[in-house]
């Protein structure tokens, strides 16, 4: 009974916040609504027992995307929220309705019991040395997807960089920061950042056997870097820096290197030699965490705006 009330409340809240976000009068209010929406969705995923999805939603859906939208909103001149044309609204409405219909089809249509690969995933999990089935999917069965998704994030970063001016190429992203004037933010950052880093590393480490993992941990680490940057404690690095570029490439290089080593050592690309599965996966995860955290923080920092 208690659970039903809680779930019903979360469902109502989700729809309510979504509606409020759509109706919001200005950009800032809409972004705040969007972040709140992400948090409620996180609760919903938690109630469904999908802790990995919940973590990702909180970190990337609400968190990182919220910061990017906030920065974009701050950059656009405050203007009365432009209403989209009637035609555009009809098209968006129709598309949303189609997506909603498709999603309800997924929930309502599948045969009972729904077919799934979950059993097979568990069956082979022991041979990967991992305890978290999602880790098994991401790092063993579908490791190629994970590898290429990392490349997609890297391309997204290069796409963001491509938007800067030619004169600023290789320079630092974002505007120059005014010297810190004291106040709450620097203090807050000094307290929170060390704790956040520890939690981020913990989420990566625990991901092998429990919900967590590199993407979520990396987002948290990136958030700490962004917080320290906003507080004026650290400067965004110059994008032409050799060390930065190696940092970005390290994860994909380690991943593809271990993957290729699998051809002679374990008989296939992205196969791990028996007995070394877990240590190798951990090495990849650590390298990917470092690179992903750098990529995500730099995507949020935006195009270069200062000459090198």
């Amino acid at each position: 009974m208690m659970g039903l009330v809680l779930d019903g409340g979360i469902a109502l809240l989700t729809i309510g916040i979504a509606a409020w976000t759509i109706r919001a009068g200005d950009d800032f209010a809409a972004v705040v609504g969007f972040v709140a929406y992400g948090l409620v969705l996180t609760l919903a995923w938690t109630r469904l027992g999908a802790y990995d999805v919940a973590l990702t939603e909180a970190a990337i859906g609400g968190g990182a995307t919220g910061v990017i939208l906030m920065r974009a909103g701050a950059r656009v001149k405050p203007a009365p929220a432009a209403r989209a044309s009637r035609r555009a609204r009809i098209i968006v409405g129709a598309l949303s309705a189609a997506v909603a219909a498709g999603l309800s089809a997924i929930v309502l249509l599948p045969p009972q019991p729904a077919p799934s690969l979950a059993l097979e995933v568990r069956e082979h999990l022991a041979s990967t040395g991992l305890g978290n089935p999602i880790g098994g999917v991401l790092m063993a069965y579908r490791a190629a997807d994970t590898f290429l998704e990392t490349v997609v994030v890297l391309l997204a970063l290069f796409g963001v960089w491509s938007l800067g001016r030619d004169a600023h190429w290789g320079g630092r992203p974002g505007p120059a920061l005014r010297p810190a004037e004291g106040g709450a933010l620097p203090l807050f950052a000094r307290v929170l950042v060390p704790a956040g880093i520890v939690i981020g590393i913990y989420i990566v480490w625990v991901g092998a056997d429990a919900p967590g993992g590199k993407f979520q941990g990396a987002t948290l680490l990136a958030a700490m870097a962004i917080l320290a940057g906003m507080a004026g404690l650290v400067q965004a690095p110059a994008t032409a820096g050799r060390r930065l570029r190696w940092l970005l490439a390290a994860g994909p290089i380690v991943f593809v290197g271990i993957g290729l080593a699998g051809i002679p050592l374990a008989g296939a690309f992205l196969a791990y030699p028996p007995g070394f599965e877990k240590p190798l996966i951990l090495v990849i995860e650590v390298a990917l965490t470092v690179s992903l955290a750098a990529m995500l923080a730099l995507i949020v920092a935006g195009p270069t705006e200062r000459a090198p």
Partner: peptide, 13 residues
């Protein structure tokens, strides 16, 4: 054909 990681589809790629 090539089985990535030696895993048979549909579990693997």
């Amino acid at each position: 054909a090539y089985l990535i990681g030696g895993w048979q589809p549909p579990l693997g790629l």
